[in-house]
Computed example of a mutant assay.
Amino acid sequence: MTTDESEAVDAFERLGLTSYEAKVFIALHRLGSGAARDVADVTDVPRSQVYSVAESLENRGLLEVQQSNPIRYRPVSIEEAQQTLEERFDRERERAFDYVDSVRKEATTEETQEDIWTVRSRERVDDRVVDLLSQATDKIVIGTRLPELLTDSIERTLEERAAAGVSVLAISRNDEIWERIDAIDGVEIETPPAYREGDQRSGRIVIVDDDGILLSVIDDDGSETAIWSSGSLFASVLIQLIEASDELRPGSGLE
C-alpha cells in the first residue's frame, strides 16, 4: 500500500470507517466492481472478511450488491459517498454536542468554577487576547515589548473598543509599537522609563475593566504561554495588586 493510500485509509478512519472498510471501498473504486476474490487480490483484507466488510459498507450506503454467483459489489459514486459521510458526520456531531449541552445545563450552581486558565501557543493566546479585549466596557491596559504580539486583529479590536468609548492605554518602549498605536484614534500609549536588562521572557499583559487579566511569557523555544482569568475574584485581586505596585507605572518593564 502506497503512502498516499495509507493516508487516505487513515482519513476514512477519522470519518468513522474501519480500516478494512476503507480498504475495500478504495479497492472497489479501483476495480469499478468485483467479487470478494477480486477485492482480496488487491488489498490485504482476507477474502473471508470481505463479505462482512461489504455488508457493513452496504448498510452505510457506500456500496451496492449484485445478487449473482459469485456475489459482486459496486461502490456508489464518489459524490454520493461524500454526501453520505458528511450527513453521517453531521448527525454524529449533533448527537455528541447535544448531549454535552444537556450535561452542561444540568450542572448545579454549586459546581466549583476554575478561576485561572492556561493557554499555550501564540495563535491561541492571540485569540484569547482578542476575546478579552472584546468584552471591555470601561478600560483596557495592554503592554508588550514585542511588535509581533500586537497583531492586526488585536489592533482592530483596540480601535473598535476605543470607538465605543472604552479607555484604552498601551504601554511599550518599542518604536514600531509606538508608531502603530499612535495611528489608532482614541488609544493612548505610554513609555516606561526604566528597562529591566536581560528581560527576554516577558510576553504581554492585558487588563480589561476590573476583572479580566492575561499575563504571558515567552518560552525558551520562542512559543508563548499565558495565564488568564475573567470575571473572577482572582482576576480582581491580581489587578488591584498590579495597579497598587509599579507594574503599570514607569519602570514596569512592559516595554
Rank of each mutant, 00 (worst) to 15 (best):
D90F: 10
I213N: 03
I78F: 11
A81M: 05
V217R: 03
D211N: 13
V65N: 06
A11R: 12
D38M: 03
D10Q: 14
L57V: 05
I78H: 09
D221H: 11
P75S: 11
D10K: 15
I177Y: 04
E197A: 15
E197H: 13
E123F: 01
R201W: 06
T2A: 07
D246N: 13
A170E: 01
D219T: 15
L133C: 03
D209M: 09
V168Y: 07
R122H: 10
V42G: 07
L149D: 05
R74W: 08
I26D: 04
D101S: 15
E64S: 10
L254R: 09
S56V: 02
E148R: 10
A11V: 03
D220G: 10
V103L: 14
L248F: 12
R128Y: 01
I184M: 06
E190S: 01
V217C: 02
I142G: 00
Q113C: 01
L158D: 07
R156D: 15
L233M: 05
K23I: 07
F25W: 12
Q83N: 02
E188M: 02
D138G: 09
S52P: 00
D101H: 13
W117L: 09
V206H: 00
A22S: 15
K139Y: 04
V100N: 09
I78R: 10
T137I: 04
S6G: 13
R91A: 07
G231P: 13
L254V: 01
P147W: 01
F25E: 02
I26G: 06
E123C: 01
R128S: 00
R93W: 11
T144K: 01
S68L: 07
I218E: 12
I227D: 07
A162I: 04
E160G: 12
A40M: 10
A8R: 03
S56K: 14
V125L: 08
D98H: 02
G143P: 08
D101T: 15
D152R: 13
S245A: 12
G231V: 02
L132K: 00
E148T: 07
S77M: 06
Q135L: 15
T2W: 02
V187D: 09
N69K: 11
E94N: 09
I177L: 11
V9S: 12
P192R: 14
T2H: 09
I140D: 05
S68E: 10
E94I: 14
R37H: 13
W228R: 00
L57F: 03
D4L: 07
R74S: 14
E243C: 00
S236E: 11
R161F: 09
S167T: 14
D175T: 13
A244I: 00
E155Y: 02
E106Q: 12
V9C: 14
R161I: 15
E176C: 07
W228G: 01
I181S: 05
P75T: 01
A27V: 09
R124F: 00
L169M: 03
T191I: 06
L28D: 08
P250A: 05
L233P: 01
W117A: 10
I154R: 14
L28N: 11
E255I: 00
R122G: 13
R180L: 11
V65E: 12
Q200N: 15
D138E: 15
S19M: 05
R104I: 14
F97N: 08
E243T: 01
Q200H: 14
Q66M: 08
E106R: 12
T191R: 14
R204D: 08
P250R: 06
